[in-house]
Design a binder for these strands. Structure first.
Length: 949
RNA sequence: GGGCGUAUAGCUCAGUGGUAGAGCACUACAUUGACAUUGUAGGGGUCGGGAGUUCAACUCUCUCUACGCCCA
């Protein structure tokens, strides 16, 4: 029994209902213990996130694959969860506090972290509801969070194991410091932008009366960051630069600070650039850091002149004048900073070399500096200029971890799709830098490292200023580290270990006071881990790792596929591969599919600041989730960004409506759901033909899905449904719904619903259930088409002959201005066997579609007529009184010209001996056939023209 | 500076070593019969420029131009 469908298709009335039904009945992951596994993990969206159009694309593609594999009977698992997103989340909560004139530091760490959890409970994870609206069939029953206890344990274990393997180490070096968020960030989180800046030229006076060969008593240096001169530690010149050869090893006296610094040789100084001499600030510039090290300055001795907010602080040698202390590094909010003051003072000292330029009028103009475009680093979250800052941080030796993923891609264990991304992947992996994983935040996975006093001889000494000089203990908990500590400190007479959660806790405890002489105190590292360090474990920690016997891990790891945007190839994908291969000894997924960005209609990047963001939920409201999903699939060719196009989404909404109405029509003719996977027995050509078409469509669809060609897959099912099924099959069988046809039509419609389901889950499920009572056999867990029938060549030829005839008649009538509804008779004096059969068996269809009442097998009467071709047959349709002969002549002449041109070109090719000898045999065969066809066409049309006079 | 990618119908995009396709838009016609969220038919492209390889290039190679992205 079918259930009646409403006259118009309203997506919003069915989506919620079906989604709840699927989820409530556990249909996203039915029990299939013996089935072959298929696994995808969803890139965990940020807990602060809401669904944007990029998520819509990424998740639609994943859902298509998961629904497809589920229909194919696999134990399809789509892991879903949320990322705690350290920086982003802390920012959200801090911003909310700011609105209430409150701030993080008004609270203890524990209190603040609790507030973040409260916020998460209240408004975190909005996106999970939005993914449901898109129809995504994840396994929500196992939804995870990267701060869940089991996941946190995996993160801890990873850190401890990596540390013990020497893959994680602590180092003092320059980091990318975000002075707004007051945390280190990794080099991937830095975005370089070209901004307008200035280039200043200074004189650094030579010390001790030394002069250059040309007599000058100073060295000229240039900089885009004058303020850093307060921490200059050298001037570098190129070893081959003869201008400075005589002063290498001598000193300059820095203006303002009066610091004496050496002139050193270093390849970094480019003789071609400016004066050829460069100032060296090892504590505040990545290049200078390396120069400084080469010049023998240890990282610990490098001068630092900025605090965590990039305000000037006193350097270790105490030479920064008081008036600078507390100034911001440069002008901010209209207030001059250290940069402006340095320039002003140097100018007053006569040590600023002006930049001479000319105005438009040709007058000479003296400027303090030369205008320049400067590549400037910005933090991707905080949005302020990044400060290279000398700190102790935790690093992952990424270079060691990179080898195996590269090998996996080379040997095919990991397939990157599209392949063009391989080069980018290799380029990054080959040049990979140490990965800074510590973050100065409160929200995140706390680093499991504790520091203790340094042991020297039989004494211990506490140093709270930095940690590099401390004893370091890394372990899974306090007990673990205190055992480690006991071993070290018991040797020098300390048999008690007290462990503190922070340096402050240690101090407030009073443990260092008298009375605790035998107790040694440890304090925990305050920092948390980079969020990506934890999300790198996602493909396996979500499945139970590190318990390698966990059933899910056993069955579903490695994952089959990962789908992500190319923008997180380095951030996430590469790190999953690095961590995964080290920890599990296997590539985390077999295939890595990278898709592009969804852009605004004009091709620009969507961004909140531009205000051109398209809300996927708005599109769902307007056109339905199915239409949006189909759009995403149809536009996803491998390797190209997708431009948003509402009209196209609308077009796919229309497609859903078309299917809806076709189903309605079927129902009104007593066509219901099929009861067999196997195609019904069919005798009529039309029915045999459509079954064969389903077989062909299925094969093409499976091939497209195997290659992850989402666009091809979507187009195949679209055209089969609309063109083949609706426009031809239904039209051909209309008015002739015998039992066989009803059975076949019902079966074909079911195959469409199944094949379309991964793309348009809602409307297909609705129609599936409307077609029959299928409460126990919902479409989401139905079976993918599986039948033995294949293409029937005779039926195909016959139906294609009918279609050819119909199209030809319609086209000719249209061109000649004959009303489409006009019924006519035709003459086919010498029909081919195919034509004779087709005519005999399909007279009703021919009359209805081609509007030809009778096809006589006698000679056509003289007089005005139009001539059309169907297959290799010619039909003459008298049009006495209906048409103007000149119009028919013009139409025929046009066709003649086209065929003659084609025939001539083919003839030329066939008479070329080189072609006949060297071309592939089928190419020659095809050319011959085409030539025969066009020659015949020429003859036919010529005859017709002759008949018309 | 290095790397990658893209240039195909008015627009958005597929595509194959054998002379080009889709959707939308456009034009004409149709229409109370599943569907105007429709049907039928049609117009429209020297496949960015140039050179080369080949019997044959939109497709392969080189080069130029334009645009985009990533890295330094």
């Amino acid at each position: 029994m079918t259930s009646e469908l409403s006259k118009t298709f309203d997506p919003s009335s069915i989506e919620q209902r079906w989604y709840n039904h699927w989820e409530d009945n556990g249909l996203f992951r039915p029990e299939r213990p013996d089935a072959q596994p298929f696994t995808i993990v969803n890139p965990p969206p940020n807990v602060t996130g809401s669904l944007h159009i990029g998520h819509a694309l990424d998740n639609t593609l994943q859902d298509i694959v998961i629904r497809y594999e589920r229909l194919r009977g696999k134990d399809a698992l789509w892991v879903v969860g949320i990322d705690h997103a350290g920086i982003a989340t802390q920012m959200v909560v801090e911003r909310q506090m700011e609105e209430k004139q409150d701030k993080r530091t008004n609270y203890s760490r524990e209190e603040f972290v609790q507030k973040v959890w409260d916020w998460k409970a209240e408004s975190g994870g909005t996106i999970t509801g939005q993914l449901r609206r898109l129809g995504c069939s994840m396994d929500w029953s196992r939804e995870q969070f990267t701060m869940d206890e089991h996941f946190s344990k995996a993160v801890l274990k990873t850190f401890v194991d990596f540390y013990n393997d020497g893959l994680i180490y602590r180092d003092k070096r320059l980091v990318n410091w975000d002075p707004k968020l007051k945390t280190a960030i990794s080099d991937l989180e830095v975005e370089t932008q070209d901004i307008k800046g200035q280039f200043w030229h200074f004189k650094y006076p030579l010390a001790d009366g030394v002069t250059l060969a040309d007599g000058r008593d100073y060295i000229e240096v240039a900089t885009t960051r004058p303020e850093t001169m307060l921490a200059d530690m050298a001037v570098a010149v190129h070893p081959t630069d003869e201008r400075y050869a005589s002063v290498v090893g001598k000193e300059v006296v820095l203006p303002i600070t009066g610091r004496r610094v050496k002139i050193v040789e270093d390849e970094h100084a480019d003789p071609e650039l400016g004066s050829g001499a460069v100032k060296i600030t090892p504590g505040h510039d990545f290049n200078d850091f390396e120069v400084g090290k080469r010049a023998g300055i240890a990282a610990g001795d490098m001068l630092n002149m900025l605090d965590s907010e990039a305000n000037v602080c006193q350097t270790a040698d105490g030479l920064v004048p008081d008036e600078y202390l507390g100034l911001h590094r440069f002008k901010r909010d209209g207030t001059d900073g250290a940069r402006e003051l340095v320039v002003k003072q140097l100018k007053e000292l006569g040590l600023l070399i002006p930049h001479i330029t000319k105005t438009k009028k040709g007058e000479e103009l003296e400027l303090d500096s030369e205008p320049r475009t400067i590549a400037t680093p910005f933090g991707d979250r905080g949005g302020v200029v990044i400060e290279p800052w000398l700190t102790d941080q935790w690093y992952v030796d990424a270079e060691k971890l990179a080898a195996r993923p590269m090998e996996a891609v080379r040997n095919g264990d990991i397939e990157i799709i599209p392949q063009s991304w391989e080069k980018t992947f290799f380029h990054w992996m080959e040049n990979i830098q140490p990965w800074c994983i510590s973050r100065q935040l409160w929200w995140g996975h706390r680093i499991p490292a504790w520091f203790g006093p340094k042991v020297s001889g039989d004494k211990i000494s506490y140093d709270f200023s930095g940690q590099i000089g401390c004893e370091t203990f890394v372990g899974i908990d306090e007990q673990d580290v205190s055992l480690q500590a006991e071993k070290i400190y018991s040797k020098v007479g300390f048999n008690q270990v007290a462990v503190f959660d922070s340096y402050e806790d240690l101090i407030t405890s009073g443990i260092l006071a008298k009375g605790h002489e035998k107790t040694v105190a440890l304090w925990r590292d305050e920092d948390v881990l980079d969020t990506w360090f934890s999300s790198g474990l996602w493909p396996f920690a979500t499945l139970g790792w590190p318990d390698e016997n966990a059933p899910l891990y056993q069955k579903h790891y490695p994952n089959d596929l990962l789908i992500s945007g190319f923008d997180i190839l380095f951030f996430w994908d590469a790190r999953m591969a690095m961590q995964g291969m080290k920890l599990t000894d296997q590539a985390p997924w077999k295939r890595l599919y990278l898709h592009g960005l969804v852009r605004a209609a004009d091709g620009s990047k969507m961004s909140k600041s531009k205000g051109n963001v398209v809300d996927p939920l708005g599109l769902i409201d307007q056109y339905g989730a199915d239409a949006l999903r189909f759009f995403m699939a149809a536009m996803e060719s491998q390797g190209r960004d997708i431009k948003m196009d509402d009209e196209r989404v609308k077009g796919y909404r229309n497609f859903a409506t078309k299917l809806w109405n076709a189903t309605r029509f079927c129902q009104s003719n007593g066509i219901g759901g099929s009861t067999t996977l196997e195609a019904p027995a069919a005798t009529s050509a039309v029915n045999r033909w459509i079954i064969g078409e389903v077989a062909e469509t299925l094969a093409k669809l499976d091939a497209a899905m195997a290659d992850l060609r989402f666009d091809a897959a979507a187009n195949i099912i679209y055209h089969f449904t609309w063109d083949t099924f609706c426009d031809w099959y239904i039209e051909l069988v209309k008015g002739n719904f015998d039992d066989e046809t009803k059975a076949v039509a019902g079966w074909v419609l079911d195959q469409i619903l199944v094949m379309l389901h991964p793309f348009m889950p809602f409307v297909t499920e609705e129609l599936w259930n409307a077609q029959a009572d299928r409460a126990n056999y919902p479409l989401i867990t139905a079976k993918w088409p599986e039948f033995s029938a294949s293409v029937d060549a005779d039926a195909k030829a016959e139906v294609e002959w009918l279609i050819g005839l119909t199209s030809a008649v319609r086209g000719a009538k249209n061109e000649l201005g004959v009303p489409p509804g006009q019924k006519l008779e035709a003459y086919c004096p010498a029909p081919s066997a195919l034509a004779a059969d087709a005519i005999a068996r399909n007279s009703a269809a021919i009359e209805r579609l081609a509007r030809i009442t009778t096809i006589h097998t006698s000679e056509a009467p003289d007089g005005a007529a139009m001539q059309i071709g169907a297959g290799s047959d010619t039909l003459i349709i008298p049009l006495e009184g209906l048409v103007d002969i000149d119009a028919e002549k013009a139409r025929l002449n046009k066709a003649l010209e086209a065929s003659a041109k084609e025939a001539k070109s083919l003839e030329g090719r066939l008479s070329n001996a080189n072609f006949v000898e060297r071309a592939k045999p089928d190419a020659v065969e095809k050319a011959k056939a085409d030539f025969a066809h066009h020659s015949a066409e020429v003859e036919r049309i010529t005859a017709a023209l002759a008949r018309l006079g």
